[in-house]
């Protein structure tokens, strides 16, 4: 195992339950970094996590995590991983400090080091002042942070985060995503399972999309968010004037969500739009190429049925 080994490598990975195929012939090679694992409920995300932890045996195929074959050395894999499940999973009658330090010891840290690390990671996730309160009295956001803290306490190579923003209000969601984004800067790889494509788009450098247990697409976030051939132009309220002149210039344009979207054909079109805006004396608030969203990528690729 080296740090150069991929985060996750699967070959023909299949897991069948009695009436459901959770993952179907999955071939993947995912680099280290912040990776989003995206799919609707039942897409196979949690099953893939369970197989990565060695808690679920694949029906067929192979699976390597951080260069270690999970079937051959599940304990070795678990020693390098932190796991944050989607559901509530912490003892409610113990304080956050006790719970996190106990999980540190369970990950193999000496008692004293575990207490110190618990203090550090609770501070990191913003629970430093609540560390001596029982978890039963925590809000949903605080419980999510405590769950993240226990996943980080043993300084893992990789953390598996299963729907970390579930149940959080917009502010809490933003804070949780900011925390997840910071993990990458600490040298900790992240595998973020979610059905919220926005979350992935905000914090991940690589995306794996699953649908019904099958691979839809795996690739760098940047490369998936391709240009659409549309130019978004925000000129404030005088949109109709702009639309009329652009039509005279032979460009197709329409107003969508309060901004003008122009179908462009090369750099010449950009020049035309710029000149028209200047000629009309309109305030140009924004002019950008519109990128696809991950939602569009998902709908497009899942609809075509071919993994890429």
């Amino acid at each position: 195992m080296t740090t150069a080994s991929p985060l996750l490598r699967t070959q023909g990975l299949t897991k069948r339950y009695a009436s459901v195929t959770a993952t179907d012939d999955l071939d993947l090679e995912v680099p280290r970094g912040r990776v989003g694992l995206v799919g609707a409920n039942g897409a196979g995300k949690t099953t893939l996590f369970r197989m990565m932890l060695g808690l679920s045996r694949p029906t067929s195929g192979s699976l390597e995590v951080c260069g270690i074959d999970v079937h051959e050395d599940p304990i070795g894999v678990r020693s390098r991983l932190g796991y944050m499940p989607e559901h509530d999973c912490l003892p409610l009658d113990q304080t956050a400090a006790d719970v996190v330090s106990t999980f540190g010891e369970l990950s193999g840290l000496p008692a004293r080091a575990a207490r110190q690390r618990a203090s550090d990671v609770l501070d990191l996730v913003g629970l430093d002042e609540a560390r001596f309160r029982p978890i039963g009295g925590f809000s949903t956001g605080m419980r999510q942070r405590a769950k993240l803290a226990q996943a980080l306490v043993a300084d893992p190579e990789l953390v598996l985060l299963d729907e970390p923003t579930a149940g959080l209000d917009p502010l809490g969601r933003g804070e949780m995503l900011a925390l997840v984004a910071r993990l990458g800067t600490f040298g900790i790889s992240v595998l973020l399972a979610t059905h919220l494509l926005d979350d992935v788009q905000q914090v991940c450098d690589h995306v794996v999309m699953l649908d019904g247990g099958r691979l839809v697409v795996s690739g760098g976030t940047g490369s998936l968010l391709e240009r659409t051939g549309l130019l978004t132009v925000d000129v404030g309220p005088n949109r109709e004037d702009l639309l009329a002149v652009l039509a005279d210039e032979g460009l197709t344009a329409s107003v969508i969500n309060g901004v003008v979207e122009v179908q462009i054909h090369g750099d010449e079109s950009l020049d035309v739009v710029r000149d028209v805006v200047a000629r009309l004396g309109l305030p140009l608030h924004r002019m950008t190429s519109r990128l696809t969203s991950l939602d569009e990528v998902f709908v497009d690729r899942a609809g075509s049925g071919a993994p890429s």
Binding site: L55, I75, R78, D88, L106
Partner: peptide, 17 residues
């Protein structure tokens, strides 16, 4: 409590059999 509060998956994500 380990079963009711669903702590078991967390315990078994550690190097434990």
């Amino acid at each position: 409590p380990d079963r009711r509060q669903r702590v078991l998956p967390l315990l078994f994500s550690r190097p434990l059999r």
